[in-house]
Simulated scan of single mutants.
Amino acid sequence: MEKDLQNKEAIEKLKSMAEDIRFCMYTTYANEKIESRPMTTQQIDENGNVWFFTNRNTDIGDGSNQGEPVTLIYSEPKNNTYISVSGKAEIVEDEAKKEELWNPMAKAWFPEGKEDPNLVLLKVTTGEAAYWDATSSKMVVFFSMVKAVLTGTTPDGGDHGKLNLA
């Protein structure tokens, strides 16, 4: 069922789905090539901005692409949950935010801790998002598809829609 959400409701839906999945493919377009790399979501804030830690010595962490358009693709096939987020990326120098987001798992990537000189914050300001949420069990999805084949109808794909975060 199509269900577009607005403002706070849209932000809450994005937060609940993406923070549960946590990992996304961070996708950029440069030199006529689409590139994706896995990233761990640290937070989705009250405005729908997505926060990551990254290394200053990478192509996305060096700050040379401030305002670069990006797409974040979240996928949890086990639960039939998917999100696509489009926005603009920027490196943010904010020690208080770094402190707020720091967690023990980040130490695996930044062994020197939150004081690591190569640790930077990456913020994606969300422009638009879409979601597909069919959290039914695999058996329910299977029977929905069988019913659709037998009746000539379309299977129930669960909820989907656009998230207008403005």
Rank of each mutant, 00 (worst) to 15 (best):
W109P: 10
N49L: 02
A30C: 04
D20A: 10
T41K: 02
E93F: 11
E95P: 05
P117N: 03
D59Y: 08
T71D: 11
A96R: 11
A108G: 08
M39V: 02
D116Q: 09
F110N: 12
D116K: 11
N49R: 06
S75F: 01
Y26W: 00
M39W: 05
Q43C: 12
Q42V: 03
M105Y: 13
F110Y: 12
C24A: 00
D116R: 12
E32R: 15
K98I: 10
P111F: 10
N103Y: 05
I44W: 01
F23V: 15
A106M: 07
F23A: 12
I60E: 04
G61K: 01
L72F: 06
K88V: 06
L72G: 08
L121E: 12
R56A: 11
E76F: 12
N31I: 03
A89E: 14
S64H: 11
Y29L: 11
L72E: 08
T27D: 06
R56D: 14
K107A: 15
Q66S: 14
I91T: 02
Y26T: 00
D59I: 05
R22M: 03
S36C: 06
K97H: 10
G113F: 00
N55T: 02
P117I: 07
E19C: 09
N65K: 12
V50E: 03
P69R: 01
I91S: 07
S75C: 09
P77Q: 07
R56F: 12
S75H: 06
I21R: 01
D94G: 03
M39P: 00
E32K: 15
G87K: 04
M39T: 00
A18H: 01
P117A: 07
G48W: 07
L119G: 08
Q42T: 01
M17G: 09
N118R: 06
N47E: 14
N79I: 04
N79F: 11
F110G: 13
E46R: 11
W109D: 13
T41P: 00
A89L: 11
F53K: 00
E19K: 14
M17N: 08
E19A: 04
I44K: 05
E99M: 04
P38V: 02
L101K: 03
P111K: 01
Q42H: 00
K107H: 14
V92Y: 04
G67C: 03
R37P: 06
E46L: 10
